[in-house]
Amino acid sequence: MSCLAAIATIAMVIALFFLRVQAAALNSSTTVYEGGAPLHDEAAAEFGIALVLAAAMFATAMLAWVDGYKITLAPAEALFRSLDQRLARSDAHLAELEGTHVRLNENQAVAELRIQHLPTERDEALRGVDAFARELQELARTEVAIHLGDPTATSGLDMPLSTTDDVADPTAPTQTEGNRP
């Protein structure tokens, strides 16, 4: 590609050089003033200018080539940069997967710990439910005895309620209404 660009640049500079000289020759042959004789030396004067312009075009082409060479990456460097970017993406993905792996291991350890403690938690929950059921039974017996006014109406209450007890007052708050210590 560089060789083709160099050949095209050389051909263009040579063509523009000859066009410049030829245009000067054509222009000098058509301009004649009355009483004057054409000197036909304009073409010779244009030859020096054409050489300077050709040299400037060659210099510009060389600067463009050097600039393009500095901008264009070598194939090995382009491959290295591509592989480096792929490695960075792979590292980021690997870090994400490692984080997921650690999180899943922690979740598994927590789940195994919970499974180990399930029997004791179940037993505690059952004891709590049993205690709550007994409390509700006692509360129901008390409410039935208060309603009937007969402490022997329910099993478990063998003492009659006196009228001076606070428990016998139907307007008194019960334990379920939040007056527990």
Rank of each mutant, 00 (worst) to 15 (best):
V66F: 15
A140R: 08
E106A: 07
E143I: 03
Q137C: 05
A6P: 03
D130F: 11
R20Q: 13
A125D: 07
T30Y: 14
D165L: 06
P170C: 04
A145T: 01
A6L: 13
A61K: 00
W65A: 03
D67F: 13
E121T: 06
A59I: 09
A140I: 07
T163I: 08
Y69S: 10
D150P: 01
T31G: 14
A76T: 07
G178D: 05
L16I: 12
M12V: 13
T60P: 02
I7T: 11
P160H: 04
L4G: 14
S90W: 06
V167W: 13
A131W: 12
E34Y: 13
D130E: 14
L83D: 04
T72Y: 07
N179G: 04
A44I: 13
T31Y: 15
L4C: 11
W65F: 12
A131Y: 13
V32T: 14
L26G: 08
E112Q: 09
M159R: 09
L79S: 09
T31K: 15
E96M: 07
Y33A: 15
D158L: 09
G36Y: 11
T142I: 11
R114W: 03
N179F: 08
V144N: 00
V66Y: 14
C3P: 08
D84T: 01
T31D: 15
A55I: 10
T163P: 02
E135F: 14
V110C: 05
L126P: 01
E46F: 05
L4A: 13
A5C: 12
T174R: 15
A78W: 00
T9Q: 12
D158W: 09
L4N: 12
D91Y: 08
E135K: 10
L87W: 07
R89F: 12
G156L: 10
L73F: 03
K70I: 03
G48R: 13
S155I: 04
L126W: 08
E135P: 01
A76C: 04
V13W: 01
E138Y: 08
L97R: 06
A125F: 12
E112P: 00
M12Q: 15
L161F: 12
A131F: 13
Q85G: 03
V21F: 02
